[in-house]
């Protein structure tokens, strides 16, 4: 079954869309950020799956295992960096939401627009 055989891409695509939907459709700023995190996590999964080699083990160099099959370590390293970036983004985003709450007394997008219009 080709469609199911690449099920991990389906997981990636569905998670991506869930996250994207939340970012676009939710008016609560925190929910938007949650959506953004899901959106990013989907991409992390895409990277992790591409590094997987069937039957491969963790890529740790050992003297006694010269010809062992490894997973590709590079995507994991890359995604470690991307995760750090993602966390920083979320943290900064939440920080801004806190400041918005302080200044406007609300974290609903429409209410904030209302207040600004006044």
């Amino acid at each position: 079954m080709q469609v199911l055989g690449i099920f991990y891409y389906w997981v990636f695509a569905i998670l991506l869309m869930i996250g994207f939907y939340a970012v676009v459709a939710k008016i609560n700023l925190v929910k938007k950020l949650i959506g953004l995190s899901i959106f990013q996590s989907a991409v992390f999964l895409l990277y992790l799956t591409m590094g997987k080699v069937t039957g491969g083990t963790a890529p740790i160099y050992q003297d006694d295992a010269v010809n062992q099959l490894f997973s590709n370590p590079l995507p994991q390293v890359l995604i470690l960096t991307a995760i750090v970036v993602g966390i920083s983004t979320t943290a900064l985003g939440l920080g801004i939401v806190v400041r918005i709450k302080e200044e406007y007394g609300s974290i609903e997008e429409q209410e904030i627009q209302e207040i600004d219009r006044r």
């Binding site: 970012v23 700023l29 938007k32 990013q40 983004t89 985003g93 939401v97 918005i100 406007y104 904030i112």
Partner: peptide
Amino acid sequence: LPAVFKYLIMGTI
């Protein structure tokens, strides 16, 4: 602040 929030969301996407 709301402007930056929008910037952050769209920039991250």
